[in-house]
Design a protein around this nucleic acid. Structure first.
Lengths: 252, 252
DNA sequence: CGCATTATTGATTGATTTCAAAGAGTGTGG
DNA sequence: CCACACTCTTTGAAATCAATCAATAATGCG
């Protein structure tokens, strides 16, 4: 099971990822020493209930993380993007199945080794904690979405979140990549595939988004999208001085 | 801001709580040195967005933790019971409002002090991690509930969870205390108060539960309740007599 | 005891699901 | 290069579950 020795190590590759992190020892720097493994789209990294032997960092690609309910429904609890950690449950069994949506590259540590590293580094610990807290915050937002939002609000929220996630990477692009299928979206948003499809169509008809291939859309009216997503949108003036950035990302 | 000096310390009080914890230094032992504060039912401990200055441990009582959506809906993301921690977000702002459901007793640390203690203790750290992971697991279960379960499944799941939670405290009691109101339940389960009420009535008519005052019910058919909750329970014997009730509630 | 709050019950509406079918995109092999 | 099979997506019509609207009942508090 120790597949991390399969590929050659690429120490010089670190800087491209770790540039933005101030401390000498970051989680990303830690993982950067590990070998990169590749998973084809659709393949599972681990299964719910598996003995939790490894912790992963996503280098490239997108994964879905899900549970199967008693009556066979799939509930996707999150999507994992490059830079995110995967499998950081302190339980000894994975809480969910992780599956590659697209072709994915990962680095892994054994849980034991990872815990040692974390324990020995006062620098790493707060970073890991921060990750867990981000995950918790995301989970809570998702609970709000599932508990009270309409189909239109759910889909809009989803598009908005992935649009913003991308914006930090590839700035000034109104094109939002949607690597996952409609079924993935449905199982993430607590809707059926038909409702997702209908809602997308509705957003397109309303001119909020425009189709741009099957796995991407162009956000045409980001302010309206935010309003539909049910954000506290009294006004969107005072947020940042970098309103110019927002305009650059989403030119109206 | 060091409000923990307000009340007198009660070192002798520890044992009653800390008896069950093996290690010399447990989270509960840590908190046990702090003064106890009381919050009346309905009063807020902190608000979403407040500067996150303290971490709390619940000594007694139940709290609700919630967010308010853009359109004014309240979404309760969890209930906090004695022994649980509150406010362990590593963010510098609280992610949610915490409000006492019943009269509640808490102990608190400043965040700074708490982090120091955690950082200096290799014994405490895994305990805190385990708590966070339990919280995460609960959040995921809640996402599953909200994403795919019917009203009946939601209410049944809720009753089952609090029944099991109580069982560790006050054993061998099929009487489940429900300290929260129907509105609390509704806002937690992503339903309306009417639907919760109707579903409870339905469960009563079906003989699954029996009313026992407004804030408690008797679980008469725990196996059926588990089935209605959508748990993967392939086998289920009929369970009318008291002995099998207890077995079914607490199988382990 | 009366009033405010909380809970139940009933009737109706409506959003989303379900069922059904057709259309679009992708890859394969002849 | 095209036909075929497959999957994924869109669209339509009907059914359903929970929300909403409305009224009554129970509880608890001063």
């Amino acid at each position: 099971m120790f597949t991390e020795t399969i590929m050659s190590q690429r120490p010089g590759f670190v800087s491209a990822i770790a540039d933005t992190t101030p401390p000498a020892l970051s989680l990303q720097a830690l993982f950067s020493k590990q070998a990169v493994e590749t998973f084809e789209g659709g393949s599972a990294v681990f299964w719910e209930g598996d003995s939790a032997r490894h912790v992963f960092e996503v280098v490239e690609g997108v994964l879905r993380v899900f549970k199967i309910t008693g009556d066979g429904h799939r509930v996707i609890t999150g999507f994992i993007y490059p830079g995110d950690l995967l499998g950081v449950s302190l339980k000894d069994r994975y809480l969910y199945t992780a599956e590659a949506v697209t072709k994915t590259k990962l680095r892994r540590f054994t849980r034991r080794r990872f815990q040692e590293e974390i324990n020995q580094s006062p620098e790493l610990r707060p970073q890991l904690f921060a990750r867990l807290c981000d995950e918790m915050a995301a989970a809570q937002d998702q609970m709000v979405l599932l508990a009270r939002k309409s189909a239109e609000e759910r889909v809009s929220s989803f598009l908005l979140v992935i649009a913003r996630r991308l914006s930090s990477d590839q700035l000034a692009q109104p094109i939002v990549e949607i690597p996952m299928t409609r079924l993935d979206m449905a199982d993430y948003l607590g809707l059926t595939i038909e409702t997702v499809s209908r809602t997308m169509t509705k957003l397109i008809s309303a001119g909020v988004i425009a189709p741009s291939g099957r796995h991407s859309v162009i956000v045409r009216k980001p302010a309206k999208l935010a309003r539909l997503a049910g954000e506290g949108d009294d006004d969107d003036k005072q947020t940042w001085d970098q309103a110019s950035i927002q305009q650059a990302i989403w030119p109206q």
